[in-house]
């Protein structure tokens, strides 16, 4: 009789330990998410996604409205194809602009959606036509330097 008490408690102990491991693997680690997807998916293509990560937030006017579901490279066009999962409660017009922004100077990158004025809404599987790639610091700097250089050559003329 005493043994069954041990058996039950130890069984629960092992189960709880394995459950904690599963939690660590799925929720903390990157061993494929457990979450079932709710809402609808939109596709957005970017020339460059910068440091955008899967599961990064999608925001509109600063409010989180969804998540980045997956990021792949289209091998034909060499564009980054991001699938965004958007909460069912939010609808976006056909001419919405998707851009990749950074929160803070060193913060994480997220996708920002700016709604347009079109009366037709985007639905499951639709593609966001207008996108703005992530800003890459090196490119910005070199662009800035290039402009400065051309300015100085312009004035010295």
């Amino acid at each position: 009789m005493k043994k069954s008490k041990f058996d039950l408690a130890v069984g629960l102990f092992v189960a709880a330990g394995l459950l904690a491991l599963v939690f660590l693997a799925m929720k903390v680690g990157n061993l494929t998410g457990l979450e079932t997807s709710e809402g609808y998916r939109l596709e957005a293509r970017f020339d460059n996604i910068g440091g955008l990560k899967v599961r990064a937030p999608v925001k509109s006017s600063g409010v989180a409205v969804g998540r980045v579901d997956s990021i792949t490279l289209d091998s034909q066009t060499y564009e980054a194809k991001a699938i965004l999962r958007i909460d069912q409660n939010y609808k976006f017009s056909k001419d919405t602009i998707a851009s990749i922004l950074t929160s803070g100077l060193l913060g994480e990158q997220y996708v920002s959606l700016e709604a347009g004025g079109d009366s037709v809404y985007l639905g499951q599987g639709d593609r966001i036509a207008k996108t703005q790639p992530a800003m890459i610091m090196e490119k910005l700097i070199s662009q800035f330097l290039f402009n400065k250089a051309s300015e100085t050559t312009g004035t010295s003329k």
């Binding site: 061993l31 599961r55 990064a56 937030p57």
Partner: peptide, 16 residues
């Protein structure tokens, strides 16, 4: 802190 960022950053940063 944003709920999503918390988990997403975590999942992106922790390798199984």
């Amino acid at each position: 802190i944003d709920d999503g960022s918390f988990w997403s950053q975590m999942q992106a940063g922790v390798d199984f």
